[in-house]
Amino acid sequence: MSSANNLKKSLLVLALATTLAACSDNDNDPVVEEPVVVEPIVVEPVINEFTITFSNLTAGQPLSPLSVIAFEDEAPWTFGTTASVGLEMLAESGANEEYLSYESALATVSAEGGIGPGETTTVIISVEDQETLNLSFAAMLGNTNDTFTGLSLVDVSSLEVGDSLMSTTVAYDAGTEANTETAETVPGPAASGEGFNEIRDDTADIITMHPGIVSNQDGLSTSALGVEHKFDNPVSKIVITRTQ
């Protein structure tokens, strides 16, 4: 690169630095030796805080720790589409680390632990104010192959402090594992089988509603599950309250 070009570039950088004032950390620029530091106007970000209660409405399905993801545009899972590996892991094993590393997330949080039938858990998520703000929820039904519940997208942009939204949720099939119900493949306490397996062997690799548990008492002789593991919709209740 010629020195003339270098100078030109440096001048441009200097001009930009002066104009923008706050951009004073061009540490790879030898010309600006004493940058003028102008205190930027600090705008305190407005924090929205949401308190979520999550109740397990099933007869005998433990629910894995609730995952909550705040996002702007693209939901972490969508009905009728192929599950991400993160959702596959969540739906097959209950583990949500990969799912919560969702790249379009503005904020994520996991409930501290799973909840048994009839139990309720509370989780709080804080996120900077956005023009468009959505929340997404997911948790595994533990005594199944790849069943999860949740809400793909809840628009909370216009929720005022003190306001609440309530929704019940249905059971979804991640479409990533065949519903064999065998002891080897159901990770929950009813079987203690394998959790995540990257092989996708379901009838179609898309998220649909779940057809329900058959069980060994209703015609599936190889099932490790009993009638107490059956569920019907809805399977959970979610209340979102904006608390800040």
């Binding site: 009838t203 509603m209 057809p211 329900g212 058959v214 019907d232 919709n233």
Partner: peptide, 11 residues
């Protein structure tokens, strides 16, 4: 097939 052709409402 009892693992494929059942459903729960809503459909």
């Amino acid at each position: 097939s009892n693992t494929v052709h059942r459903w729960l409402n809503p459909v």
